[in-house]
Amino acid sequence: MKSEEKEDRGRIDISTEECKGCGLCVEACAPNVMQLSDGFNSRGYHPAVYLGSGCTGCGVCFFACPEPGAITVFTLLSPAKAAEAASLSLATTTL
């Protein structure tokens, strides 16, 4: 597991109900941090799950996945970018 001061470069969200369990993302994942769940979703597929750490945010799982919205990939922003994004979201909320 990662130490607390060093965050992963990326993380992913998997919409379990949108996953058909084809396993292409698991195959594609370079850092090997995905697998198919032992459990089922409501359609009877073993959905893909993220192991919780080690994601680099590269996005290959997103492009390997045939479902439009099953995987969303996030990347870690640099401190400067994060500050900028925070001020932008502040600006939009105050508007």
Binding site: K20, F63, A64, P68
Partner: peptide, 22 residues
């Protein structure tokens, strides 16, 4: 029926191509 997923089979290339075109 289901409004969440495509009608394509698991692992079908159509979904990928749809995403790339979109």
């Amino acid at each position: 029926g289901d409004h969440l997923t495509t009608h394509y089979c698991p692992g079908c290339g159509h979904g990928n191509l749809h995403k790339y075109i979109a």
